[in-house]
Nucleic acid binder design. Structure first.
Lengths: 120, 120
DNA sequence: ATAACATATGAATACATGTTCATATATCGC
DNA sequence: GCGATATATGAACATGTATTCATATGTTAT
């Protein structure tokens, strides 16, 4: 792996023109906020385990409870959270409710993250 | 975009063999923990703005302060956090300290997340 | 109707996290 | 050495978040 030096170094002593150049790389606050919400959804271990089950399957709450070993209430709260972010869809069938991940965007980040973490 | 139905549906009434099949998709707790740390690093708006500056450039703390409009202390604490996760490298030069992102893995997730968020 | 089951939710609690304030360390110019 | 500058850090504080507990809602079976 080559140790390529970073393209450009910035310090305050640089002229304002250079500061403006750096500023163009700064993401806006609204963008940062929306982006942080996506990553925040993936920032909790139990939520990641839950998501790993919903990635390719539709699973009812009671089964999630059995597989994850979490309380029914904790799972239901997490699912509510994911629902509010529109990350999961759900389908009621009798007394069961089946959940599945409904955001390819998050699915992609999860899988990419997993690839890297597993390879070391 | 096709609305492809999810491959398989799981409920507790399924036999244990199917439960075992679902279990294979569950990521382990250690994996979930390591994965969550990566996403947690990207889960705060200010940290994302900071990272956006360090993605392609080496920048000193004082410049980060000027561009981000955060206090010197807040930035230094965030940098410490990123340092402890080995996500940034730093180089001391006189009284200045230059930081740069040092994790391609996080760089990739950041850019992928940004792509999706910006396109809507 | 009643009991058992499946899920949801509000309140309380415990814990993590980001920022600020004050202060420490280290370097430079004089 | 001394003051000014650049960065780091500990403690305090406020806020956010995940879980638990108790309970509510809704469905099925009897």
């Amino acid at each position: 792996m080559l140790d390529v030096p970073t393209a450009q170094t910035f310090c305050v002593s640089d002229d304002t023109q250079q500061l403006a150049a750096l500023n163009e790389h700064l993401i806006s606050s609204p963008t940062a906020n929306r982006l942080s919400e996506v990553f925040k959804a993936l920032s909790d271990p139990n939520r990641l385990r839950l998501i790993s089950l919903l990635i390719d399957h539709e699973v009812c709450v009671h089964t999630l409870e059995a597989v994850l070993g979490m309380s029914q209430s904790a799972i239901s709260h997490q699912l509510r959270h994911l629902r509010q972010l529109n990350l999961v869809r759900f389908r009621k069938e009798g007394r069961h409710v089946y959940y599945a991940l409904d955001d390819d965007h998050v699915r992609g980040l999860f899988k990419q993250g997993l690839l890297h973490v597993e390879h070391e």
